[in-house]
Deep mutational scan, measured.
Amino acid sequence: MEVRTIKVFTTVDNINLHTQVVDMSMTYGQQFGPTYLDGADVTKIKPHNSHEGKTFYVLPNDDTLRVEAFEYYHTTDPSFLGRYMSALNHTKKWKYPQVNGLTSIKWADNNCYLATALLTLQQIELKFNPPALQDAYYRARAGEAANFCALILAYCNKTVGELGDVRETMSYLFQHANLDSCKRVLNVVCKTCGQQQTTLKGVEAVMYMGTLSYEQFKKGVQIPCTCGKQATKYLVQQESPFVMMSAPPAQYELKHGTFTCASEYTGNYQCGHYKHITSKETLYCIDGALLTKSSEYKGPITDVFYKENSYTTTIK
């Protein structure tokens, strides 16, 4: 009895394709271990004539594949690729409408935090270190965002349907971005203890939790000093293409032309909904596939993004 075979390709990165001759009487799992086709788990399936010449994702289970996976995804987590594939199996079914010149995501599976993050990423200057993220990001900007969303979920250790947080998501993504040249110098002034300067680099240099107003941050924000008295913390120097200011959701007025974009969060910790506000020729609110415009805006804002380049204080 002759062994019926077909020729397929296996890959971990969709760049390096490895030619395989597979036995049609055995499952993919018996031949390769966990195997995925377009995100779908085909591990328990036997090869079919229609699979001839198709590319299958496999887990990096030998040295060659491990090197290829690390170079593309910059992670050695053995569960990463499987999590990416199972997320992709959902995100490829989502709709990605162009809204006001940006790629958004039609609401499904509690994905409003991903839509808000995706919209924000198209408006701030950011370059990702893992080629996987950078490639998928370019495709997302062009309207094909399924891979990018699935990668975000995998890097953030999230599953489809789980509630997510924009600030946490951005923080994970910033860790995989090139923020080497970003720098922030802060000064804390206390009447009792004097003053202390701190220099922050990388992710810490672009994120701040405690106030939404970048102007206020430049002037000074009140913080408790270690001595128990009130101290003032203010920005001395900022070198970065953008800054992200966050605070627990509270009524906040966004003035046209003073910011790049913002995240609105309605609801409580267990259950809520994100919308995205962007400042173009007027203010726009993007909620999944829905767009509304207004000249002014007041609502429960939790993150505001500002364009920056270089700032030095005039406070002496």
Rank of each mutant, 00 (worst) to 15 (best):
R4M: 12
V58L: 09
E296I: 08
S246A: 00
I45E: 14
Q134H: 10
C193P: 01
H90F: 12
E204R: 12
Y96S: 02
G257A: 04
Q216I: 05
Y306K: 00
A262V: 07
P97W: 13
V42P: 00
Q251V: 13
L163M: 13
K316Y: 15
I124M: 06
G220T: 03
T55H: 08
D180N: 15
G288N: 06
N187I: 06
T103K: 03
P131G: 04
S50W: 12
C149P: 05
T302I: 00
K127T: 10
Y297W: 08
Q30W: 14
A69W: 04
C149W: 02
Y96N: 06
N110R: 01
G29R: 09
T103R: 06
E264L: 09
T282H: 10
K280C: 11
H90M: 10
K280S: 12
N268D: 14
L290G: 12
A115F: 07
V206E: 01
K127E: 14
Y96W: 06
T11F: 09
F32Q: 11
H51K: 01
R167P: 06
C182F: 06
D180Q: 12
Q216N: 07
E52K: 12
L153G: 08
L133W: 02
S79T: 12
K201A: 05
A205C: 00
Y284I: 15
S25N: 15
A177E: 06
T116A: 07
Y155G: 06
A247C: 08
V99I: 14
L102I: 03
L121T: 09
W94R: 06
K298F: 14
Y73P: 02
S294R: 13
K44H: 09
K218V: 06
E162M: 09
L290I: 15
L81A: 00
Q196I: 09
T169I: 14
V185N: 04
V206R: 04
D180M: 09
P241N: 07
V67T: 13
Y234V: 07
T211R: 00
A69Y: 11
D303E: 04
P34D: 12
Q175H: 09
F242S: 02
N129Q: 13
P130A: 10
I286Q: 00
R141Y: 05
V67C: 15
S310P: 08
T282F: 06
Y269I: 15
T120E: 05
F56Q: 02
V99K: 15
L17F: 15
A231T: 04
D109T: 06
I277G: 00
E253Q: 08
T292L: 08
A205S: 06
H74P: 03
G29W: 08
V21P: 10
G267L: 12
T232Q: 07
G194Q: 02
Y234G: 04
N110C: 07
K93G: 08
K233A: 13
T226S: 13
C271N: 12
L153S: 01
L186D: 04
T91E: 01
F305Q: 00
G272K: 02
P300E: 15
A117G: 09
S263Q: 02
Y269A: 15
L153A: 01
D41G: 09
L59S: 14
V236G: 00
K275L: 02
T11R: 06
G257Y: 11
T55A: 11
K255H: 10
I277A: 02
Y208D: 06
G161H: 01
V8A: 13
N89Q: 13
Y73M: 03
Y28T: 03
Q197K: 09
H273K: 00
P131N: 01
Y155K: 03
S86Y: 05
I277K: 02
L121P: 04
S171T: 14
G194P: 06
T116D: 03
Q195R: 07
V21Y: 09
T43M: 10
W94M: 03
L119V: 12
V236F: 05
S263P: 02
E168H: 15
N309V: 15
Q175T: 07
A142E: 13
R167S: 05
G267Q: 15
F148M: 14
Y138G: 13
D13P: 06
T27C: 12
T312G: 10
C182G: 03
I301S: 00
H51Q: 08
P224Y: 10
A154R: 04
S263G: 02
T260P: 01
C193D: 01
T19D: 12
Q31H: 15
H276W: 15
F217E: 00
I223E: 08
I301P: 00
Q20F: 09
D38M: 08
Q134N: 08
L119K: 00
V22M: 09
V21I: 13
E308S: 08
S181V: 06
I223W: 10
K219F: 02
E168A: 15
Y138Q: 14
D63A: 12
D41L: 11
T258S: 12
V8G: 04
C190M: 03
T302D: 03
D41T: 10
T27I: 13
K229W: 07
H276T: 05
L151Y: 06
V12G: 06
E68Y: 01
T10M: 07
T10G: 02
P130H: 02
V160D: 03
T313W: 12
A117P: 07
D23Y: 12
Y172C: 09
I152G: 06
T11S: 09
W94I: 05
G202T: 01
E125C: 01
I286S: 02
G82H: 14
E281V: 01
T75Q: 12
M85C: 04
H176R: 10
K183H: 05
